[in-house]
Design a protein around this nucleic acid. Structure first.
Ligand SMILES: [Mn+2]
Ligand SMILES: [Mn+2]
Ligand SMILES: [Zn+2]
Ligand SMILES: [Zn+2]
Lengths: 130, 130
DNA sequence: TATTGAACGATAATAATTATTGTTTGTCAA
DNA sequence: TTGACAAACAATAATTATTATCGTTCAATA
């Protein structure tokens, strides 16, 4: 736990919502003006990997187009980032209100199941054995 | 409907899963070797805006860190891309199975409600009136 | 047939992120 | 104490994904 890491953590604890690395950088520079953006990225990743923080959505690097027209949800592997379709009937929502708090009007409900695909589970148990 | 747009559309109809613009580019080059990647991007956006296709995830822009430790879901405005937290209790899932088809092991369930925030609804109704 | 505007291809520019490199700093053992 | 060592750092180059610019093509139409 270095000084930069400590100050980064404390600064982030005071932030709300869903800040970007740039947001965090701008804020922590008030405490450590010499800090590098690369250090911010490295430590955010470290916090995420260690489970202290989580990212809002697993972004797959590039835009992905949905080619499955049926109503479905997604199984997303947090290790290999693979995206698998799963029928909507398997994961029913208790309700799908059209009107939500704050005047938000719902048009579509998407469920992401985050976890580990079979291949990555096997990979990990094989590594643990060695 | 230009030739490139037509061929792009037909090529994409034959694709499955969640292709990236690069995937689409590589495939459509077999039909039109001179096509530009920029044309692929422009037409994919056109298809998405017109509602013919949809993108898998709206927030693939930059990494966002989740600072709300409570169990909650998200309201995502498709117009301004704002992300608002909503308590998990408001959107209960009928079940959260740990084991899913294909040997996938679920660790967390995230519900994204896609729609329009109040501000963007007002913006749009004001535009329609003018 | 001449005009013209949308779309195109090439490519420059931008934004987000990651990799590289040389330097600093704390830890530990001679 | 001092010197070796490794982790982390700042600076910055490089990479990746995407968008903007610009000169050109081409089909519809005046
Ligand atoms: Mn899908
Ligand atoms: Mn949130
Ligand atoms: Zn996996
Ligand atoms: Zn909005």
């Amino acid at each position: 736990m270095t000084h930069q890491r400590q100050v980064l953590y404390e600064a982030m604890q005071k932030m709300h919502g869903h800040p970007s690395p740039e947001d965090v950088y701008l804020r922590v520079r008030r405490r450590i003006p010499s800090i590098s953006l690369a250090t911010v990225y490295k430590n955010i990743h470290l916090f995420i990997e260690s489970g202290i923080l989580r990212e809002v959505s697993l972004h797959h690097g590039s835009l992905r187009v949905e080619m499955n027209a049926h109503a479905h949800h997604h199984l997303i592997c947090v290790v290999c980032k693979s995206i698998t379709d799963i029928d909507e009937a398997v994961l029913p929502l208790a309700a799908k209100p059209k009107h939500l708090p704050g005047g938000f009007r719902a048009e579509r409900y998407a469920v992401d199941v985050l976890g580990r695909c079979q291949a990555c589970q096997k990979e990990e148990s094989a590594q643990k054995a060695s």
